[in-house]
Simulated scan of single mutants.
Amino acid sequence: MHLLSFPLWLLLSIAGVQASVLTLQSPRFTISSSNAEQLRSEPLSLTKKPKPLTLGASDVLKLTFQVVDKEESKGVQPHQTFLRFYDEVTGEEGIQPVRVTSGGKAKFELNMARPPASIPPTTATTPLKVELIIGSFVHSPLKVDLFDLLLPESQPAPQHPDEASFHPLPPIHHTFQPEQKLPPRIISAVSALLVLSPWVVLLGLWGYISPSVPYLLSPNVLPFITTLGAFEGLLVWYWIDLKLGQVLLYGGILGLVTALAGRQALATKSDLRTARK
Rank of each mutant, 00 (worst) to 15 (best):
D145C: 04
P97A: 02
G104Y: 06
D148V: 00
A113S: 13
K107P: 01
V138I: 07
A124C: 03
F108R: 02
Y86V: 06
E92S: 03
A124F: 06
N111Q: 14
P115D: 04
P141Y: 01
K143R: 15
E93F: 06
Q80R: 08
D145T: 13
N111P: 03
H139L: 12
F85G: 02
L142C: 13
P141W: 01
T101S: 15
F108A: 09
Q80W: 04
T126C: 05
L142H: 09
T123D: 12
T122N: 04
G103V: 05
L149K: 06
T122D: 06
T90Y: 00
E93N: 01
T90I: 02
P141I: 10
H79T: 10
Q80H: 05
K129M: 10
M112L: 15
I134E: 01
A124W: 09
E131M: 15
I133A: 12
P121G: 04
A117K: 09
T90G: 04
D148L: 15
G91T: 09
K129F: 13
E153V: 14
G103T: 15
K107C: 07
I119D: 05
F85R: 07
I119H: 06
T125Y: 08
G135Q: 11
F85L: 12
P116C: 11
S118I: 03
N111G: 01
T123A: 11
S140P: 03
A106W: 09
V100F: 06
E153T: 13
T101F: 07
G103Q: 15
T125P: 00
Y86I: 02
V130P: 07
P115C: 11
G94V: 02
L146Q: 02
V138G: 00
G104T: 05
L142Y: 12
F137C: 07
A113E: 11
L110N: 06
E92R: 00
S154W: 07
L149Y: 10
E131I: 14
D145K: 11
G135I: 00
I119P: 01
P115S: 09
T122Y: 03
Q80P: 00
F147E: 12
I133Y: 05
H139Q: 07
K107N: 14
A113M: 10
K129E: 15
T125S: 07
V89E: 11
R99H: 03
F85P: 01
L110A: 00
L142T: 10
D145A: 09
A113L: 07
K105Q: 14
G94F: 01
A117G: 01
K129H: 13
P152L: 13
E109C: 05
